[in-house]
Design a protein around this nucleic acid. Structure first.
Length: 298
DNA sequence: CCTCTTTTTCCTGATT
DNA sequence: CAATCAGGAAAAAGAG
């Protein structure tokens, strides 16, 4: 049902299978169950919007759930907000947190792309809780993606099960959440800039953000889009139809095409989210109203 | 149910 | 020629 599967496109799964997990932020809106307990917290909004404090909450949470020693993670190294955090590469994480960097990076990537999963997961708060620590297997699963992206010419997007991983993650997250008194968490529940609810869509479900995040995740970007000029925000679609398929998958619309996606992109010109780059096909440039794409943006 | 914004569809025509 | 680019129009989707 959810699958497109219409044999319209060939499934050339033979070529290099690349990982792709396009649906970041998917579950944030629906995962508000715990807000009644703790107020808005780091796990309720996209990492991109975390405050410095929420970044720490997240770090603390990882320490807790993984039963790590506090000195495993140099908090000082993470005196940064979510936007900055999201822009960090695996190398930077490793550099900042040593071996734990791997874990941090993996977890963050998962959060970025998977959000908090469906609300249904959260319901199981105290029911399912399979008490799975972050054992090696789970760590590995985080590193794998939930989707296999086949970048073959036919641009077929094949999705494998993602709920599995979400479930694993949620169970991990909830496992250690005993009653709502858990130490640190509740002390600061006000830090979330609820203000993101300003206009529309507080989370990142917009097309330009989707594009931006593909760009920002080189590890997960199998040559779909490439920076032409990183500092200027100029980028180029390498596989236009493949990106469109990915976008379509995210929107559960199997008939998305680059033709249609590009129309939406063109609407961004007027809003200055994108700037026109003429003469060059498949090339776009982030405009002044696009946020979060710069390397050192704050 | 209504309003406003964003995205999707479709289309005609121009460019590359 | 096939892909893109350009926008106008209008419908569909989402968020409030």
């Amino acid at each position: 049902m959810i699958l497109e599967g219409t044999g319209r496109m060939s499934i050339n799964s033979s070529s290099n299978l690349l990982h792709q997990q396009p649906s970041w932020t998917d579950g944030y809106s629906t995962c508000n169950v715990s807000s009644s307990f703790y107020g808005t917290q780091w796990h309720e909004i996209h990492p991109q919007y975390w405050t410095k404090f929420q970044v720490w909450e997240w770090l603390q949470h990882l320490l807790d759930t993984n039963q790590l020693d506090a000195n495993c993670i140099p908090f000082q190294e993470f005196d940064i907000n979510g936007e900055h955090l999201c822009s960090m590469s695996l190398q930077e994480f490793t550099q900042a947190a040593g071996t734990a960097g791997q874990l941090l990076y993996s977890n963050l990537q998962h959060l970025k792309w998977n959000g908090q999963c469906g609300s249904d997961m959260y319901q199981s708060h105290n029911v399912i809780v399979k008490t799975e620590q972050t054992d090696p297997s789970l760590m590995v699963s985080w590193k794998e993606d939930n989707y296999l992206y086949d970048s073959g010419y036919g641009s077929t997007v094949e999705l494998l099960d993602s709920k599995t991983f979400c479930r694993a993650q949620i169970s991990m997250m909830t496992a250690n959440h005993q009653p709502p008194d858990s130490s640190d968490v509740k002390k600061l529940q006000d830090h979330t800039p609820k203000s993101h609810t300003k206009k529309h869509n507080p989370r990142g479900t917009h097309l330009w953000e989707f594009i931006r995040d593909i760009l920002l995740n080189p590890e997960k970007n199998p040559g779909l889009i490439k920076w032409e000029d990183r500092s200027e925000g100029v980028f180029r679609f390498l596989k236009s139809e493949a990106v469109a398929q990915l976008w379509g998958k995210k929107k559960n619309n199997s008939s998305m095409t680059y033709e249609k996606l590009s129309r939406a992109m063109r609407y961004y010109y007027k809003r200055e989210i994108l700037e026109r780059v003429d003469g060059r096909r498949l090339v776009y440039k982030f405009g002044k109203n696009a946020r979060g794409w710069r390397e050192n943006e704050n």
